[in-house]
């Protein structure tokens, strides 16, 4: 074996720049997808718990569909398939934007929100019914009772499973390289093809993913510790 390790090549100069650019895109796409999937997941969960039948059906179908199909297929669907059903004007507009990025965000968001909706739903179920009752009895509407009383308690309970969903988004975001989003994995792959130093490129990108994940779970755990003080389990 006469492979010459060259870490400097990957970490500095133009290739180092590529890694940084890729890292930025990874952070950006993960952050946007996490925020959007929290929003969408909450909406889907509340729909599922509402008494409005069509909303319940919609959210049940949504959850089962997106949870049980491979993410890579969904990414390809949004990127290669969605233009067939969108109006021309929308397509034209989309192609002027960063369509790869948008398709990546949409697929990550939709996929993740299906999982998050289930976590939120189980969180809501774990809050005693008398909390909803007490708040409705004071005159709060269903949505107010959910937003100010039930969901804040539910979220604190489901923080551990939510963290793993967030971490999944960061890791899953590496799949968007397949549709040409220039994320960390894409850049590592690019460096490999230019330099044949795949070992260094992918070791560096692996470590970066690891560090991001560790930081995220540390931050959320700190938040958790601070806010869980007074919630009895």
């Amino acid at each position: 074996m006469n492979y010459q390790f060259n870490w400097k090549l990957v970490l500095t100069g133009e290739y180092g720049q590529w890694i940084l650019q890729g890292l930025w895109i990874t952070l950006e796409i993960s952050f946007v997808s996490i925020v959007l999937s929290m929003l969408l997941g909450t909406i889907i969960a509340v729909f599922r718990l509402s008494r409005v039948k069509p909303l319940v059906w919609f959210s049940a179908t949504f959850t089962e569909f997106f949870r049980n199909t491979p993410l890579l297929v969904q990414i390809f669907f949004w990127y290669f398939g969605s233009y067939a059903i969108l109006p021309d004007a929308v397509n034209k507009w989309l192609y002027k934007q960063d369509f790869e990025f948008a398709a990546g965000v949409i697929s990550l968001t939709v996929y993740t929100s299906a999982f998050i909706a289930e976590e939120i739903r189980s969180g809501i179920f774990s809050i005693p019914k008398n909390q909803l009752e007490a708040s409705r009895a004071c005159g709060l509407s269903f949505l107010q009772a959910m937003s100010f009383v039930v969901l804040p308690q539910a979220f604190r309970i489901i923080i551990p499973p939510l963290i793993s969903q967030f971490l999944n988004v960061i890791k899953n975001s590496s799949l968007v390289m397949t549709i040409g989003v220039m994320d960390l994995t894409y850049m590592a792959r690019q460096i490999e093809s230019y330099t044949f130093h795949g070992f260094e490129a992918f070791t560096v990108s692996t470590l970066i993913y690891l560090v991001i994940s560790l930081i995220v779970s540390l931050l959320v755990n700190q938040y958790n510790k601070h806010f869980l003080r007074f919630i009895p389990h």
């Binding site: 008398n130 009752e133 708040s135 005159g139 709060l140 107010q144 009383v149 308690q153 806010f227």
Partner: peptide, 25 residues
């Protein structure tokens, strides 16, 4: 209404338990 099990909101301070409905409703 006052319940047997109090049903206070555990994530809010005493003050906020009381002010929530007046402020929101």
């Amino acid at each position: 209404i006052v319940f047997q099990q109090f049903n206070l909101y555990p994530h809010l301070s005493v003050l906020k338990n009381i002010t929530l409905a007046p402020i929101k409703v």
